[in-house]
């Protein structure tokens, strides 16, 4: 698809068959993530499930990437700032052909580079080392600025967590991006309302979150259901036409979305699925 056709395509709404395909991919991603986390006795299952739809939409509909040339200078850049949700990203990268499916079985194994936090260590398609909170957006601002300086038309997308909206470096870079009018920078906030030790509004209230971004001179869109492709699509398309301002999409999501036994429960930031969750996962088709 040429760039022109791409943007024409971007202006029209998703048709039902496209949405069905995206949903199917999202389901496949959840299945694979479940098996990876179960095998590795790993954590962060709920964190990964929270961002599946946004990631699927990005990799199927937004990002211009060439898996056979992962370092192509004209590629879009995607930073998963909430790097602890990386299992879902690995699955998508493998689906897109960045690396073989076999590598997914290495997730969190002894000596493996498939680390449980996004780490720029040679795994194709991983652009930055994140997971220490508040690192992804500053790097994204630098990437977007470099694209502008080099006269490139590509885009930088950063997915951050709500917990990361506590950090000073995130807000420093929110100022920086707006000051530099980086309209080639798009941020998605995965607003699942849980952070490490509690509800975001109880630990450190972020509200009114969208107004804060607007007050910092960003174009801000709200997605009421961050698992609904139709709504995600609408928000992205509104952002794509914005000029002279960076854009943010506040996506209201559910931590653990897609497996009823773990939905909206913070312990699934930490725990590995056990008997009960495996039983439910079977009933819900994830195994």
């Amino acid at each position: 698809m040429t760039q022109k056709q791409f943007f024409k395509h971007k202006r029209t709404s998703l048709i039902t068959s496209e949405i069905d395909n995206l949903k199917k991919t999202a389901f496949d991603v959840r299945k694979k993530v479940f098996s990876m986390i179960l095998t590795a006795h790993a954590s962060h299952l709920a964190s990964a499930y929270s961002i599946v739809e946004v990631l699927v939409y990005l990799y199927q509909k937004v990002l211009h990437l060439n898996p056979s040339k992962p370092a192509s200078p004209n590629r879009d850049r995607f930073i998963l700032s909430k790097g602890w949700g990386v299992s879902a990203l690995y699955v998508l990268l493998s689906k897109k052909g960045f690396f073989s499916k076999k590598l997914l079985n290495e997730y969190c194994k002894d000596g493996s580079k498939m680390i449980g936090i996004a780490t720029r260590n040679g795994i194709r398609g991983i652009e930055a080392t994140t997971g220490s909170m508040g690192h992804g957006l500053p790097i994204g601002v630098g990437l977007a600025k470099a694209m502008k300086l080099q006269g490139k038309k590509n885009r930088t997308v950063v997915l951050i967590s709500d917990g990361e909206c506590d950090t000073g470096s995130t807000w420093e870079s929110i100022l920086l991006a707006a000051h530099h009018k980086l309209d080639n920078l798009l941020v998605i906030v995965d607003y699942n309302k849980w952070q490490s030790f509690g509800r975001t509004n109880e630990v450190l209230n972020l509200e009114p979150l969208i107004n804060k971004w607007k007050a910092f001179n960003w174009h801000a869109e709200m997605v009421r259901d961050g698992h609904d492709f139709y709504q995600i699509d609408k928000a992205f398309k509104k952002c794509f036409v914005v000029r002279d301002k960076p854009q943010v999409i506040i996506a209201h999501t559910i931590k653990g979305k897609g497996l009823s036994a773990i939905e909206d429960r913070n312990e699934w930031h930490y725990q590995t699925p056990r008997e009960n969750e495996i039983k439910v996962a079977k009933l819900e088709g994830l195994i």
């Binding site: 957006l137 080099q150 870079s173 000051h179």
Partner: peptide
């Protein structure tokens, strides 16, 4: 003017910003 930037009192974000620029070849 296009190769000098005062990023304000944002040392943490400035290191990330510098990282993004360096990843792009600067």
């Amino acid at each position: 003017p296009t190769r000098f930037y005062n990023t304000g009192v944002t040392e943490q974000a400035s290191i990330g910003f510098s990282t993004g620029l360096a990843l792009s070849g600067y």
